[in-house]
């Protein structure tokens, strides 16, 4: 419905759900999506960054969603 793939939505939802001020790090994302190939997770993160749905925070491995306050 939002124009994103299943993988992209899963990644976005996990990032949105993280309450930490620095956001979710890539390792946590990986461990929560163990069933997915790392390349697919990375691709989804790159796509979401490029589209402005998420952004990197304290370094290139931590992400927050632009939907969250």
């Amino acid at each position: 419905a939002n124009g994103l793939t299943v993988v992209q939505n899963q990644v976005l939802n996990l990032i949105k759900a993280c309450p930490r001020p620095e956001g979710l790090n890539f390792q946590d994302l990986r461990s929560q999506l163990q069933h997915m190939p790392i390349a697919s997770v990375k691709q989804a993160v790159d796509f979401l960054c490029n589209e402005g749905h998420i952004y990197s925070t304290v370094d290139d491995d931590h992400f927050k969603s632009t939907d969250a306050e």
Partner: peptide
């Protein structure tokens, strides 16, 4: 650990850039 002022500033800058990118992308569609 709480974020430093510098980290908070960087996060806010990146958030603004992402919001601008998102607006740009949705305008393209």
């Amino acid at each position: 650990l709480p974020l430093t002022e510098e980290q908070r500033k960087k996060i806010e800058e990146n958030r603004q850039k992402a919001l601008a990118r998102r607006a740009e992308k949705s305008a393209e569609q």
